[in-house]
Design a protein around this nucleic acid. Sequence first.
DNA 1: CGCCAGGTTGATTTCGCTCAAGCAATGTGG
DNA 2: CCACATTGCTTGAGCGAAATCAACCTGGCG
Lengths: 239, 239
Amino acid sequence: MEGSGAEIPMDCLSCHVLAHSEWDVLSKAEARLLDRGKTCSAYAPGETLFREGDPCRGVYCVHDGLVGVRKTDQNGQSVLLARFGYPGSMLGYRPFLAGECHRGTAEALAPSRVCFIGRDTVEELLARNPRVGLNFLHSMTKALGEAEEGYFQVATHSLRRQLVHLLLIFRSRFGVVGTDGAVRLQLPLSRQDMAAMIGVRPESLSRTIRELNDEGLVRFSGRTAHLLDIQALSDELDE
Amino acid sequence: MEGSGAEIPMDCLSCHVLAHSEWDVLSKAEARLLDRGKTCSAYAPGETLFREGDPCRGVYCVHDGLVGVRKTDQNGQSVLLARFGYPGSMLGYRPFLAGECHRGTAEALAPSRVCFIGRDTVEELLARNPRVGLNFLHSMTKALGEAEEGYFQVATHSLRRQLVHLLLIFRSRFGVVGTDGAVRLQLPLSRQDMAAMIGVRPESLSRTIRELNDEGLVRFSGRTAHLLDIQALSDELDE
DNA sequence: CGCCAGGTTGATTTCGCTCAAGCAATGTGG
DNA sequence: CCACATTGCTTGAGCGAAATCAACCTGGCG
């Protein structure tokens, strides 16, 4: 449940997610530099990459798997920030660039392989290739836009609405279309974590899931969910 | 109530807020360029600088006054994003850098003078002086941190807590220490806007203010507020 | 087998919203 | 200068959504 994951070998030069990351503009030589400066680890679900308050020693590149960022208040109430790392996405670059400590705790939600890139390497690459900085700038504009949007959602939308929204997001990432048009999806999160993502208690989430079940919109069974009426679900978001 | 404010003369070269803005690294020549590319206007309270959905034609520099950014949902529910422009701060640079339309509506809350800097000028200055870009990058890291923090607050804190938090923020900006140790402050916002800032209805805000009044923690009268027991208020935030 | 964590369900309470009315300050036109 | 509308703020009553507290499943796992 604790620890920094097991170190594993990995090669940036042949990495296929590199092209979908902020590093897609590196030259061969620069990629070699990146490769030498990184350390890769495998994390089991529940293991943490870094903790709230930790000094920020570099950035994390999610190779595969799923990583969530969690903030916990003094009562142990935890909120999952929507921004979990997709394959190819960078984690922890905001506090890095701001020169701050980490503001959240990053935790593997699924078995994941993640590369850590140390401060010196990141700074050298930023200095060498200005387009890297621009890539990060662009990622940040997007992240800021999403954060503000999310803030707005929480402030104005009901639990049910947010749940439906979340399910439709999962659909686009994990959904498999079945024979009858229904979508089957394997949930990457426990109920508790889903609840934390939309900022509600697990009990409330459970009730709302039941509600959707009873209305025939979805069918939940453990960690697999069937979305039976995508149209109706989408409609709910538009009012 | 409508319109884009009355144009007024203003000189960047002698502007004293410039030094506290992202433009503090400009050379004389660059500042002249900035001066030629800008247009300054005076806005009365309630006038809007730009609206949600407007294409983003440049960035806004708040010279003095107070500007809020508002998002409105389909029912007319509006939420004030905490990020109002302080003197010297830039508004609307996120969508500018992201190449998006404005996501919120900016509105003068107090009589304000604001300079608009057109796209071409901003781009030329970004290209000429890379430190400008770094300044914006740094501002954005801060903004993103605050947005995530705010998200967390809304998700976990009660109305009362958020109100107390807001009052303490105002204290640091507008507070004047009285003879008896109490802090007097002139509120920059109407009740409605204060309510919108913490994402609640005006009625609920009113009740909570009354509550704090009855407990002797504060004394409200119109737009002036006296914080009688700072210690107790601060304590509430820590639980 | 019994234990335990995660999940569900039920009963009750709390918080903030809605709807509605009243009130004070400001403005406006006769 | 006064009657009247308008606007912003407060108060009250009732309601509804989600939290809380508590019990009870269920499925691993020692």
